[in-house]
Amino acid sequence: MKVGVVSYGTYIPIYRIKVEEIARIWGENAEAIKGGLGIYQKSVPDVDEDTATISVEAAREAVYRANINPKDIGAIYVGSESHPYAVKPTATIVGEALGVGNDFFSADLEFACKAGTAGMQMCIGFVRSGMIKYGLAIGADTSQSKPGDALEYSAAAGGAAFIIGKNPIAEVEETYSFTSDTPDFWRRELQPYPSHGGRFTGLPAYFRHVTSAAQGLMDKMGLKASDFDYAVFHQPNAKFPVRVAKMLGFTNEQIKQGLLVPYIGNTYSGASILGFAAILDVAKPGDRILLVSFGSGAGSDAFSIVVTDAIENFERNPTVWDKVNQGVFIDYGEYLKHRDKIRM
């Protein structure tokens, strides 16, 4: 019995701000930042958009493409670190907006940038055990960053939704996670912005977890990098995923299609799965995809996914790259208004 992705939907807000515009305000060298991070611009939500609205829009696209009755969805998990409420689940809002009814398992998840893939694993478990027909896993964020902090160049907004079930367009062959207590990035209760360990976010955090999860999965399955047609890694900037791909033996060709961060920034819980969705947009039956998320704190979820024949009759337009390539550029003043950083 094949279980995997039955459908997917994505949402990226249309507004963009360029690195030059942020650097102009803080008196920094835009070229050096672009060279260092590999990010040219990032997505910005509208004043009336948040993680709940992004989740609903992505999920609606997934339900529409799946052509299923929303009432057949038996579980909804929304992973984010920017849920609109501290207490009151985003998943309830998504369930109501989709018309799922009241008969479903649900919770909001939080594990920095990997809460979306954690939701996918939970749905896979539910479907495989026969407890539900379809599960909806969403990763979405309108990520926060302190004005003037290095994070401001990358913290972006967007999300992706996956319907997990039987007869998939992409079968999840195996999943493996690597977790440890590593304080690389955190946000304390009632604090508006996260803090991070600067360079500490690299080797002991991102690289250790992503390589361990990817290697652990490949060892478990007896696979190597060349067995995969595509790979997508969490992308907090463009440098980390490119470097980690090289460390694991993947080529630039394998990661190119899923590398969105230079043009939309780091969409946190949406980052690796939006890249995965961009790969599904072009993948052919039989293609094998490696998806590895990373959540600070820290952990990584790795998945080996094989595309099935069912993808050929699946509606994949508009594509993720269509949404990445659109954009209305705003200046820093408008950005502050959009991110609710102006106190009146």
């Binding site: 948040d50 709940a52 907006a97």
Partner: peptide, 14 residues
């Protein structure tokens, strides 16, 4: 499109 209509201040509902 699903959007925010408004909110009851910083501590009220959305």
């Amino acid at each position: 499109a699903f959007r925010k209509y408004g909110e009851d201040g910083n501590s009220g509902i959305i």
